[in-house]
Amino acid sequence: MSVPHIGLYYFGALSLVLVGIYGVLVKKNLLKILISLSIVETGVNLLLISVGYITGRSAPILSEGIGPKQAVDPIPQALVLTAIVIGVATTAMALSVAITLYEKYGTLNIEEIRRLRG
C-alpha cells in the first residue's frame, strides 16, 4: 500500500463507514439497512472527533492546569454532540417508516415491497 501511515482511529472510522456501506449495498432487509446506516454514522462521528484530536492534549475543559494551549479542538466535539442526538431521532423516524411499511406489506424485504407496490 502506498498510503502513508494512517492513524489507528482513522482506520477504525473508515472501516466502520465501509462496513456500513457494505451492509447498505448487500442487505435486503430494511432494518438491516438502517442498522448499517447507523454504523456509518458512528464511523463518521469517530472520524470527525479523531480529526480534532491533538496528541498530548486533554479535553477542552479549562480547569486547573489546562489552559487554552493544552486543549484539543472543541469544534468537532460540539458538532458531533448534536449529531448523535439528531441521529437517533432520525433513525427512530426511519424505523417507524419501516414499521408502517411492514404493517402494510407484511415484509421488510425492499425488493418484495417494491414488487408488491408494482
Binding site: 456501506i21 447498505v24 449495498l25 439497512i33 425492499i110 425488493e111 417494491r114 407496490r117
Partner: peptide
C-alpha cells in the same frame, strides 16, 4: 428509477 433504495445506493457507490 425503480424505487428500490438499494439500487440507488449502488448508483452512489
Amino acid at each position: 428509477y425503480n424505487g428500490n433504495v438499494q439500487s440507488y445506493s449502488w448508483y452512489l457507490a
